[in-house]
Amino acid sequence: MASQGTKRSYEQMETDGERQNATEIRASVGKMIGGIGRFYIQMCTELKLSDYEGRLIQNSLTIERMVLSAFDERRNKYLEEHPSAGKDPKKTGGPIYRRVNGKWMRELILYDKEEIRRIWRQANNGDDATAGLTHMMIWHSNLNDATYQRTRALVRTGMDPRMCSLMQGSTLPRRSGAAGAAVKGVGTMVMELVRMIKRGINDRNFWRGENGRKTRIAYERMCNILKGKFQTAAQKAMMDQVRESRNPGNAEFEDLTFLARSALILRGSVAHKSCLPACVYGPAVASGYDFEREGYSLVGIDPFRLLQNSQVYSLIRPNENPAHKSQLVWMACHSAAFEDLRVLSFIKGTKVLPRGKLSTRGVQIASNENMETMESSTLELRSRYWAIRTRSGGNTNQQRASAGQISIQPTFSVQRNLPFDRTTIMAAFNGNTEGRTSDMRTEIIRMMESARPEDVSFQGRGVFELSDEKAASPIVPSFDMSNEGSYFFGDNAEEYDN
Rank of each mutant, 00 (worst) to 15 (best):
M1F: 13
R8T: 00
Q20V: 12
A22T: 12
G37F: 09
L47D: 04
S50T: 11
M66H: 04
F71E: 07
F71D: 11
E81K: 07
H82V: 05
G94F: 05
I96N: 07
R106G: 11
R106Q: 05
E107M: 10
E107Q: 13
I109Y: 03
E114C: 11
N125D: 10
D127R: 08
D128V: 15
A129L: 12
M136I: 15
W139K: 07
W139G: 08
Y148D: 09
R150K: 11
T157C: 15
T157A: 15
C164T: 13
M167F: 12
R175E: 02
G177R: 10
A182Q: 02
G185W: 05
G185F: 02
T188K: 12
V194Y: 02
V194Q: 01
V194I: 13
R195G: 10
R199A: 04
N205S: 13
W207V: 10
G209Y: 08
E210P: 04
R216K: 12
R221L: 03
T232N: 14
A233Y: 03
E254C: 05
A260G: 14
R261W: 11
A263S: 10
I265P: 06
R267E: 03
K273P: 06
C279T: 08
Y289N: 10
E294W: 00
G295F: 11
V299A: 11
I301L: 14
R305N: 13
Q308S: 09
Y313A: 02
P322H: 06
P322D: 08
S326R: 11
Q327F: 12
C333E: 02
A336G: 15
A336M: 08
E339C: 06
S345C: 12
I347A: 09
T350P: 11
T360R: 01
E372G: 12
L379E: 00
R382M: 03
R389H: 02
N395K: 08
T396Q: 06
Q399T: 15
R400N: 08
A403C: 15
V414T: 09
F420V: 10
M426D: 06
A428V: 15
F429E: 02
F429N: 01
G435K: 06
M440G: 04
R441D: 05
R446P: 03
E454C: 07
S467Q: 13
N492K: 14
Y496G: 03
